[in-house]
Simulated scan of single mutants.
Amino acid sequence: MSDITLRTVATNGIEANVAIAGHGPAVLLLHGFPHTWRVWSEVIPHLAARHRVIAPDLRGLGGTTRAETGYDAANLALDAEGVLDALGEPSATVVGIDAGAPPAFLLAMRRPERVRRLVLMEAVLGDLPGAEDFTAGGQRWWFGFHAVPGLAETVLLGNEAPYVDWFLDGGTLGRGVPPEIRDAFVAAYTGRDSLRCAFSHYRAMPTSARQIREAVASARLTVPTTAIGAYPVGDALERQLRPHADDLTGHLIEDCGHIVPLDRPRALLDHL
């Protein structure tokens, strides 16, 4: 990890904590919940051999500004574009997982000239058709829990570690993540304000879903796109994208949990 540099860059009214490594064509990595840029720790060294890897902490998470507002996907896409601007990168391959996938998608839809290639994994894009099998019976329980203003942060305050551990264990099919990465995630999500920011991403999901519907109603996804599924999302994301993408490839990684970059980094690198 010694070849990774952490920088603070100004973007879209916030200060983003950004991990940077390597030289070459830019690759922008956008993490999800309950992660920070460190979710990419196992793949960054390999990508950095030939690319300039740029991995920011999303708005409100990790070392990035605990903003009061702006957690919808369109604004997160502006955050990401501003990171590229601040680092002098006119375009990048953009990779998003979980909560990082909707802003990556909207960046490619709205500013295709900035995205050479798009890779989305283990996420659903709002309420676009195609994910009915995955969402049958409603979203996972924590979506509703996180969405109620003020509730989850009050209930979880002082119990952040076991809560984060539950997601990390489930997201790796029980295999877990390296202790130092686990500890970094727990630290990033400890405290009322950290929890508030994390759950603000969920509270903005109705707005993000509307933005995604509007985007596909007015344009097509023209950049080369790869959809990667594991457990539990599977091929739901690929099915959502298929009617809207001009150039789409789908992959399923077997025996892989939701946190693909830590659970099956070698398989992920094969597709990247």
Rank of each mutant, 00 (worst) to 15 (best):
G63K: 12
T64W: 04
T65K: 07
R66Q: 15
A67V: 10
A67S: 14
E68R: 06
T69L: 14
G70P: 05
G70M: 03
D72Q: 01
A73L: 02
L76G: 02
L76Y: 00
L76N: 05
L78E: 12
L78C: 11
D79V: 09
D79P: 01
A80G: 10
A80L: 08
L84C: 11
D85G: 06
E89K: 01
E89M: 10
P90C: 09
P90F: 07
V95I: 15
V95D: 09
G96R: 00
G96I: 01
I97G: 14
A99T: 06
A101E: 09
P102K: 00
P103N: 08
A104R: 01
L106A: 07
L106N: 02
L106P: 01
L107H: 03
E113F: 11
R114I: 14
V115A: 11
R116K: 12
R117A: 15
L118Y: 00
L120I: 03
M121P: 03
A123K: 00
V124P: 00
G126D: 02
G126V: 03
D127W: 01
D127F: 04
L128W: 00
E132F: 07
D133P: 00
D133N: 14
F134H: 13
A136N: 05
G137E: 15
G137M: 13
G138N: 09
G138V: 05
R140K: 07
R140M: 12
W142L: 11
F143E: 12
G144L: 03
G144P: 08
G144N: 13
G144Q: 14
G144W: 02
F145T: 13
H146W: 13
H146A: 15
A147T: 08
A147Y: 10
A147F: 15
G150D: 06
G150V: 06
L151C: 08
A152R: 07
E153M: 07
E153N: 04
E153Y: 06
T154M: 10
T154N: 10
T154R: 15
L156Q: 04
L157D: 15
G158T: 03
G158P: 05
G158V: 06
N159D: 14
N159E: 12
A161H: 01
A161K: 13
P162Q: 02
P162R: 05
V164L: 00
L168Q: 04
D169T: 01
D169S: 13
D169E: 14
D169G: 09
G171Q: 07
G174I: 01
G174S: 09
R175C: 05
G176M: 02
V177E: 03
V177W: 07
V177Y: 13
P178A: 15
P178Q: 12
E180W: 01
I181G: 00
D183N: 05
V186I: 11
V186N: 04
A188D: 04
Y189K: 00
R192Y: 06
